[in-house]
């Protein structure tokens, strides 16, 4: 192992800021894409529910008209 202590590992031979910043930002960018995808799925669920409600309302109205 190239590091003697945990503190050494954090400091990264003086490059700690650069190394950790790059890993943090990369994680944020990838997480944003995943999050956006999850939100899109939720909104699709909502839309699908609205569509079904609408279809049911229309079917009900049609039945009452034909009676």
């Amino acid at each position: 192992m190239p590091f003697d202590s945990f503190q050494d590992f954090i400091i990264m031979g003086g490059y700690g800021l650069y190394v950790w910043l790059s890993f943090f930002l990369s994680f944020v960018v990838i997480a944003l894409v995943a999050l956006e995808t999850a939100i899109a799925r939720k909104s699709l669920q909502k839309k699908s529910q609205q569509l079904q409600n609408r279809q049911q309302r229309l079917a009900k109205r049609q039945r009452s008209v034909s009676q």
């Binding site: 190239p2 990264m12 650069y18 790059s22």
Partner: peptide, 19 residues
């Protein structure tokens, strides 16, 4: 980050390569 050796020229800054 933790187990690969440091670079003889770039020190630990080269670890950014893994991303």
């Amino acid at each position: 980050l933790a187990f690969a050796p440091a670079d003889y020229q770039q020190g630990d800054s080269y670890r950014i390569i893994f991303l």
